[in-house]
């Protein structure tokens, strides 16, 4: 089975190479899209973890600190921090804004207590130490030391952080809490919530306590439609890949009908005939998937935010490639199964 399959791949090499090349492009796009989905899904726990909080306090009825429109008095953090079981509690401002001057771009705004919960880990430069300083995530193309317009205010970029994107890869500007309050609340001492380190048994009046998973779930909700679109698009790409491979294998099977008839007429077991076709299809699919890895990297350069592949993604893609290969072989297999061995007789 291996020999016939390998030799047929060699014999029709040009056709299969074209099929592999085209399929790898489709696989690559699918892989990049799926990587975007992974990236989007990964950024949610990452941004929540950035706060190093165990619990969150928001206004009663608020959906969560990232999405709420119900704000609280920032001084609530003082009361919370005095509660038993709480090690640290800092008010946070979480909002959307724009950054840049000439051609402003969307950005997330995180206002945090200097040195407190929500201050991002620094990969370059240093953390914001005073009003007017900002730390930026990837996606904002400024250097440390540059000035940056955020929500109409000018900040000096003093540091960069390696993560921090959320809401579909939108970059984030981290500024001191008071600066964020200036931008969002015209200087009022308000906050979206309080990040809590430790365990708060009873929330303050008219407030609620959420754990990290509830906050992540709240943050994931507005992204669900977009993630679903990515999933559907990726699945469609896999199906297109299956169609391409299926077409090539089907055409090859059509050309090999007499071979199948001869195999049958000479008593070759059906499993060998069918297995050979399936194997051929899976080999083409897996080779295309392997080639899709560098293709997806190239495609990734054109995407608005990172595409995350990872080992899990590679394993998943390999499994999908095998399934795609098997599906793609079905039409050819049907041809092989229905070939009449009597077709081996007669002239050319």
């Amino acid at each position: 089975m291996w020999l016939v399959t390998a030799r047929d791949l060699q014999f029709r090499a040009r056709r299969f190479i074209i099929a592999i090349a085209v399929t790898s492009l489709v696989f690559g796009i699918a892989l990049a899209i799926d990587g975007m989905r992974r990236s989007v899904q990964h950024e949610i726990p990452a941004i929540v973890a950035n706060f190093d909080a165990d619990q969150w306090v928001t206004a009663r009825g608020a959906s969560g600190p990232f999405t709420t429109t119900r704000v609280i008095d920032a001084a609530t953090a003082d009361a919370v921090s005095d509660s038993p079981g709480v090690h640290e509690a800092d008010a946070v401002v979480l909002s959307r804004t724009v950054s840049g001057s000439g051609d402003p771009a969307d950005a997330n705004l995180v206002g945090h207590v200097v040195g407190g919960l929500g201050a991002p880990p620094i990969s370059e430069g240093h953390a914001a130490r005073t009003s007017g300083e900002a730390v930026v995530s990837p996606g904002i193309t400024v250097d440390v030391g540059d000035d940056l317009q955020v929500g109409g205010e000018t900040f000096r970029v003093v540091g960069k952080t390696a993560g921090g994107r959320y809401y579909f890869g939108i970059p984030t500007v981290f500024v001191p809490l008071e600066d964020a309050q200036d931008i969002v609340f015209h200087g009022q001492d308000l906050a979206m919530g309080v990040a809590v380190k430790g365990h708060l048994d009873t929330p303050p009046p008219d407030m609620r306590v959420l754990d990290n998973s509830q906050v992540e779930s709240d943050l994931r909700r507005p992204l669900a439609g977009g993630v679903q679109s990515l999933v559907v698009t990726a699945v469609l790409m896999w199906l297109i890949a299956a169609g391409i491979i299926g077409l090539i294998v089907y055409l090859s099977a059509l050309e090999r009908l007499r071979d199948f008839a001869v195999f049958k007429a000479t008593g070759a077991p059906t499993r060998i005939i069918v297995g050979g076709l399936m194997l051929q299809s899976v080999i083409v699919s897996v080779l295309a998937a392997a080639l899709a890895i560098p293709v997806s990297k190239l495609v990734g350069f054109g995407l608005p935010f990172p595409s995350k592949l990872g080992v899990q993604g590679l394993v998943q893609m390999l499994a999908i490639a095998v399934v795609v290969g098997l599906l793609a072989s079905l039409a050819g297999v049907r041809n092989a199964l229905t070939t009449d061995p009597a077709a081996a007789f007669g002239g050319n």
């Binding site: 014999f11 007499r258 071979d259 001869v262 007429a265 000479t266 008593g267 081996a344 007669g346 002239g347």
Partner: peptide
Amino acid sequence: TVGVVFQAFNLIPSL
């Protein structure tokens, strides 16, 4: 039990 010789030879072209 049977060996078949075909008019069109019917050898597998890739082998």
